[in-house]
């Protein structure tokens, strides 16, 4: 099956290749194959497939990756607006409906 892609040119993902130590952790944690390793550095090769989950940035030891991560969930964004907080799926704590 072909990979599903969402909107192009919206993602906030950034990789500072100068800082990258080439450990390859981002390749392991990314669920959409956004990164590739070549010349002992990671590179963003499928930017538009990024879903901003934040796994790469969190697991980057040298903090070479930044991304404005959060839930890509319309209901969560509506929740956030209604509660005047960050976007959150209704699936928190005891009352859960996960998106």
């Amino acid at each position: 099956m072909k990979d599903l892609m969402y909107l192009p040119d919206v993602v906030t993902l950034n990789l500072c290749e100068a800082t990258c130590n080439g450990c390859g952790m981002c390749l392991k944690v990314c669920p959409h194959g956004v990164f590739e390793l070549s010349g002992k550095k990671a590179h963003i090769v499928r930017r538009d497939y990024c879903m901003e989950c934040g796994a790469c940035a969190l697991n980057c030891q040298v903090q070479a990756i930044t991304v404005n991560s959060g839930v890509g969930c319309a209901a969560g964004i509506i929740n956030g607006i209604l509660r005047n907080s960050e976007p959150t799926c209704g699936c928190s704590d005891s009352k859960s409906n996960c998106c």
């Binding site: 990979d3 599903l4 969402y6 919206v10 497939y49 879903m51 890509g72 969930c73 319309a74």
Partner: peptide
């Protein structure tokens, strides 16, 4: 259908905000 973005596995926060 827009609310299904939350159930899907490939939508980003920036994208959903733009869409909305």
């Amino acid at each position: 259908a827009m609310n299904f973005t939350g159930s899907s596995t490939f939508t980003s926060l920036s994208g959903v905000k733009k869409e909305m």
